[in-house]
Amino acid sequence: MHRGKGMKFVGDSRVPAERKPNIPKDYSEYPGKTEAFWPNFLLREWMVGAVFLIGFLVLTVAHPAPLERIADPTDSGYIPLPDWYFLFLYQLLKYEFAAGQYTVVGAVLMPGVAFGALLLVPWLDSGKERRPLKRPIASGLMMLGVASIIFLTWESVDEHDWEAAAQQGEIVDDVEVDETAEGYEIYQSQESCIGCHGGDMLGGAAGPNIFESDYDKDAVMDIIINGADGMPADQFEGSDEELETLAEFIANDGQDPNGDDE
């Protein structure tokens, strides 16, 4: 910086009044071949960015962000899944050596050691050599870490039941079950129905929402008598008439088939 007497300033500020000539700095003594950041380098960088942006926008338009139904803390049947970048950690906690009484190992110890090591890499690998092949231990450990993250994520994705996951979070239209209907009363008297499909008929511990699928009366009766996949047969304990009323009620989307629709 220029110092000394006789310096002039803008008003009473500290900004020097004399403009210095705007000459680019001299970089010729810097190590290696160089080029200007602005505009040469930035142009290439931004062109890559522009292509990236186009791809990104295409992705967002083609695949809207998913939104499941509103959180219902009482739904204990929901199988949770973290976002994909936490899957490896989530998967780790499934293995015996990292679960149960050893949860501390999987939840704290292993990630702690891994990320701690990552943080301290410059001191763990303090040699001068930069080429990855010339420092096999550091490179090897990193490869191992990356491979295990990929493996754990893969295993987690593979084990997860994606179809069930897509179904369990679906936004369902509110079904207003007519609780005064005869069919509803019959349903309430059937312990085995409630056991799986829940007291509100909207799905429970083992069975789905009854009104989710569209069957007509005969198909519903057939399912109740003969069962369906995952649903045992002959669970209904009532008269044939009651069975018929219930089936009609279910086929009519939870409204009393004899009642007026307002």
């Binding site: 680019p24 700095k25 970089y27 810097y30 290696g32 071949k33 160089t34 080029e35 200007a36 950041f37 602005w38 040469n40 380098f41 930035l42």
Partner: peptide, 8 residues
Amino acid sequence: ADHEVPEH
């Protein structure tokens, strides 16, 4: 903005 970047 006005600085250099290595070519590599």
